[in-house]
Design a protein around this nucleic acid. Structure first.
Lengths: 340, 340
DNA sequence: GGATGGTCTGTAAGCGCTTTCCCAATCGTG
DNA sequence: CACGATTGGGAAAGCGCTTACAGACCATCC
């Protein structure tokens, strides 16, 4: 078990002081070519790699950015992360990615961890909770982080006190509602997300708004809670069909649940879209490859990630900035005219 | 821009030495209850969070584990990462996850970065390249890392000199080949992965082996290169159909490419499975929800991730350990008897 | 020729934490 | 009651790096 070489070893081998070695290794100009060459070759010879903790300590921040998402395995967040990675591909910048699995405690723990790591910035994606207690603690964390010089950017959050990028959930759901109404659907079931998420709230109220504009009402029993997972979509659609046997359309608040719903329908001999139309939200990559391909609302996930990262790396402005990104209705095969 | 409180501030406020504060905060060695209480309340009052870089420097390692995968957005790697996260959920352990997008340079850079961070262990998932130069450099990195006390574990790699977990690619492909042969398929096209990946190599040779056991040959022109992405599957199947118009089955070396292939076939009026059977490999979560549901070979991805992490956290043994995990043939709707 | 200024280089003081070493106080025991 | 054995707490020495600060050297200019 050898000792890892330090900058002191490099300096000694090169016959210079550690200061000179450090300056050379960091590319600071004022080092004469001969010394510079000696240092570099010494470093190479020893296989020297700087200890980043020591560096971060001395500089009192490493340049890395903390990223907090619900689950990178979920295509929605996967795309957001991909966008961030693409935007940071060329730089040396390190992204630290954490999954909360929607556990608020874990989320707070990660924020604390990132603060302890003195990251340069944090990006948090995923709807926040409509929970005062949680919101307050999160706000306190973020404010503390920023007042110590950190930067925070958010994706799709309303309440947290930081710069954010927001997809137009309300507008997207609204145009989807109108599209369904135009297709003649009158008995529409909705599979929601967790009731305390702002995303759920927004998509739902946009949808309701769209229906009302078309002169349609929307009974409470047409609403079943899901939790944004495939299996919950499967379970929810069963409840829906039981409650409203003559349903003509199902709107799931995200694509994953729509996939679960379509699977259940298919297994129970209910043809999509002939018997029941199905629509989702997000337009995750797989949606176009489903059979039938899924009608949905496209959310520019990768772009949201990239923009959020950019926001997080820009210096702080006096006012909080919010960038709104448009969503786009994508009608595919899974929605057709309502049967009579 | 306030100064972040340090352990010194806590100690001062509590009226004790930093040593006592540190001991209290780390729960190490008995500190008398009154002092302990004073320290804890001082820490709470100041909102103290230890600087992890300083801690890592003093302890000469933080406990974190570096994870290198091709792309977490790819369901295969997503599941592996999920397995690791689940296995480390209860611990304080931090996983640092990096995407290489199969860029060997980036992969080497990440390894170097993790060494510089003095991580406790690294887990690398994804087939390695059959490239001597790259292999040598990677081996040097890993050996260096381990001889400095680090631990390395690999998922699905042959050559790198570390403990590893390996799915039985050969066996899985072999039983799939036999299943296709049993269904009467004689003209089978194969969509491969990148030719220099060991995974490609193993799956292909297993498949060939299975066919030969059934007394079938396998012409070169029935082979088209893909790169494990959906779009490459789409392109490859087009070439295949052009070359062998009376094809009865297509085997894609992973599910994602099978999805692309099915999409192309569908768009060109070729019915799966009636006209052409399609099979994949991996059994990613979406595979069962496809229409038709996809026949494939199940690879226990999450378990591989969990096992690899466990391996990485166990102390090193004198000999290299390799855990083999079984794969399992999963026949679904996308494969049926060959048409005459 | 000495003062002036510029360019390199080295010395040393941190960055914030852990941990060894040591001392003082307390305890148990014959 | 004296003694070693324990125990709790503090001083201080690092961990490996960056970066003022200052000193050395050389060329330039009046």
């Amino acid at each position: 078990m050898e000792r890892t070489p330090t900058i002191g070893d490099v300096a000694r081998l090169a016959g210079v002081s550690v200061a000179t070695a450090s300056r050379t290794l960091n590319g600071i100009r004022a080092v004469s070519p001969p010394l510079r060459a000696r240092v570099l070759s010494a470093a190479r010879e020893l296989g020297y790699a700087p200890n980043l903790h020591a560096r971060a300590l001395a500089r009192s921040s490493d340049g890395s950015v903390g990223v907090i998402v619900h689950d990178v395995g979920d295509p929605y967040f996967g795309e957001i992360v991909r966008g961030m990675l693409r935007a940071s591909a060329d730089t040396e910048r390190m992204l630290l990615i954490c999954n909360t699995y929607r556990d608020p405690q874990r989320e707070l723990a990660y924020v604390a961890h990132f603060r302890a790591l003195r990251v340069k910035a944090m990006v948090m994606a995923g709807s926040d909770l409509e929970d005062r207690e949680f919101g307050a603690r999160m706000a306190a964390q973020i404010t503390g982080f920023e007042s110590a010089g950190g930067r925070a950017a958010l994706v799709g959050r309303h309440y947290a006190p930081g710069d954010s990028v927001m997809p137009d959930n309300v507008g997207g759901a609204r145009s989807l509602a109108r599209a369904l109404a135009d297709l003649g659907h009158r008995r529409i079931g909705v599979i929601t997300g967790p009731p305390n998420l702002t995303t759920t709230h927004d998509r739902l109220s946009g949808f309701r708004m769209g229906l009302e504009e078309a002169g349609l009402g929307f009974p409470d029993h047409a609403l079943v809670n899901g939790d944004f997972t495939r299996d919950s979509g499967e379970r929810a659609v069963e409840v829906l069909i039981e409650r409203i046997p003559d349903l003509t359309a199902v709107f799931a608040l995200n694509d994953i649940m729509a996939i679960g719903a379509m699977s259940w329908l298919r297994q129970h001999g209910i043809h999509v879209p002939r018997d029941v139309s199905v629509a989702g939200f997000d337009d995750i990559p797989i949606s176009r490859d489903l059979v039938p391909s899924l009608s949905t609302v496209r959310v520019p996930m990768a772009e949201m990630g990239a923009r959020a990262l950019a926001l997080a790396l820009q210096p702080r402005t006096s006012s909080i900035r919010t960038e709104h990104l448009a969503t786009e209705l994508v009608l595919r095969e899974s929605t057709v005219e309502a049967r009579k």
